[in-house]
Amino acid sequence: MKTKEKNVIEIKESNWSYRKGTILNTKMMTKTEKWFDIKLDDGELGHEPGQFVQVELFGVGEAPISICSSPTKKGSFELTVRAAGRVTNQMHKLEKGDRVYIRGPFGRPFPVKQMFGNDILFVAGGLGIAPLRSLINYVMDNRKDFGKVDILLGCKSPKDMLFYDEVERWGKRMDINFACTVDKGEPDWKGNVGLITTLIPGVNLNPERTYAVVVGPPIMYKFVIAELLKKNIPERHIVLSLERHMKCGMGKCGHCQIDHPKNYYCCKDGPTFTYDEVKESKKL
């Protein structure tokens, strides 16, 4: 930190500075979701499953986006962005070769080590598959470290399914049980139709040694958690990833604080929480 000119002091290591990278590849996965593969100039992102980055579009703003690739994948990391507003619509215009600017990784990752040696039940609704995929692929790459693995996936319609090719591969693996459902079918859809909650009763699980990792919209949490509790999964074995308005990622701006009697910032204390921690919140 030195004086540049009169009255101006430069902050050399600002926490607001960006890590720079280049887009290696993109793909429109659905009408509203675009996938990006990004390589940083300064090497590995250095994240753990469940963390997120703040992506900056200069002149437009920042948005928090989950890292959807596993840290076991080296050389680049992936994001899936739904066009939901100002920043995210603009992000959709980025193409292969474009530069990107990020801060992070931020947030408390999924409690991967506590999960070692346990059965894992993944429940993903809609875009929830994005943060969950960082853990699913981590578990696949370290399959021995875990017990039985179940994946339940729900989305609006077959057209809205994210990571279609990958999901198909999961369906074919013998070391995972995979089921998927859509809210509304289409003529050539042969899978389940109905809410994701309908898949839970059918899962055969040993509640004491199962971790259920659930990511989806607030409304889904309510019903899925009720089903999981019916199966006697302990509250502290139900792991969620919550979404909140975020402006800093550093536990300062206040936007992401959970409406809860305890002091929880979604960006620092989360976004992953156990149900036990946040159950007093009116809306998850």
Binding site: N7, V8, I9, E10, I11, W16, F58, G59, R99
Partner: peptide, 15 residues
């Protein structure tokens, strides 16, 4: 910030 091929940012305060 300033875009010139790549974006360069600089952070400072009025001292």
């Amino acid at each position: 910030f300033k875009e010139d091929g790549d974006v360069k940012e600089s952070c400072y305060i009025d001292g």
